[in-house]
Design a protein around this nucleic acid. Structure first.
Length: 236
DNA sequence: AAAAGACCCAACCGCCGCATA
DNA sequence: TTATGCGGCGGTTGGGTCTTT
């Protein structure tokens, strides 16, 4: 965030000012050529000073647009692809602490951008709040996340660990212990009432909430479980 | 196979705080 | 002290893609 304008920079501004005034700015999706131009410019000059970059690089874009394109897409350490269950857990956890502080949350997920996290929240999380007809910012929904969604993610994480270590064999005792340990830690952290899962009973307790395509499984949670929990919440 | 609707995500917009002149 | 410019943030949107009917 530099408002500093050195003499050289000022000169650079003036040199391109006249021609830039006549250039019509481009909007919408970036082309491969634009991406290449931006990457090369940053490789040579470094990132930052976005308005100067926009003027000097030959890109017919605003500085803001260049910055966004770089930070959210082109920067080498930007991670692509679906969020892992671990990352989803972290987002749910941090959002419960900080609310819509996307940038702050993103700082704790290396390679993930605030935009991506924001999109995840809006498309996946809020969707379920809508389905349940609950305000996504309500404590009721926060409870739903803590009681059902997060445990199901923990379950997934432990299942992944299991697959990584012993793809075809019986689940080893250590993995079961790990899973149970995570559940206990989770309970302690959130003062949660979700059940400790006895060995061999994991699928029965959380079966409807896990197993298929990530978050959508949660939406398929048994209605009886929901009404039970809803009644409980309302009474207490 | 085609139309309609839902979903997803890249990009834009407006606002704010900070630094500088 | 005030005006200006910039970077950064969160909210919103447009359109491409996927799914359902």
């Amino acid at each position: 965030m530099s408002g500093k304008k050195g003499r050289r920079e000022q000169q650079e501004y003036e040199e391109v000012e006249v021609e830039v005034e006549e250039i019509e700015l481009r909007r919408g999706p970036w082309t491969v050529e634009e991406d290449t131009l931006l990457i090369h410019y940053i490789a040579y000059h470094g990132e930052g000073r976005w308005n100067l970059l926009a003027r000097c690089s030959g890109l017919k874009r605003t500085g803001k647009s260049c910055r966004l394109r770089w930070l959210n897409y082109l920067k080498p350490d930007v991670k692509r692809g679906n969020l892992t269950p671990e990352e989803q857990m972290l987002i749910l956890d941090l959002h419960s602490k900080w609310g819509n502080r996307w940038s702050k949350i993103a700082q704790h997920l290396p390679g993930r951008t605030d935009n991506e996290i924001k999109n995840y929240w809006r498309t996946r999380v809020q969707k379920h709040a809508k389905q349940l007809k609950i305000d996504a910012n309500s404590t009721l929904f926060q409870d739903a996340i803590r009681r059902f969604w997060m445990p199901s993610l923990i379950q997934k994480i432990s299942e992944q660990q299991q697959q990584q270590h012993q793809p075809q064999q019986q689940r080893p005792q250590t993995e079961i212990a790990n899973h149970n340990m995570m559940m206990v830690e989770f309970d302690e952290k959130y003062n949660n009432t979700s059940q400790f899962v006895p060995e061999g009973e994991e699928g029965r307790v959380l079966g409807s909430a896990v197993g298929g395509d990530e978050v959508s499984d949660w939406a398929m949670m048994e209605e009886s479980l929901w009404s039970l929990w809803m009644n409980d919440s309302i009474i207490s």
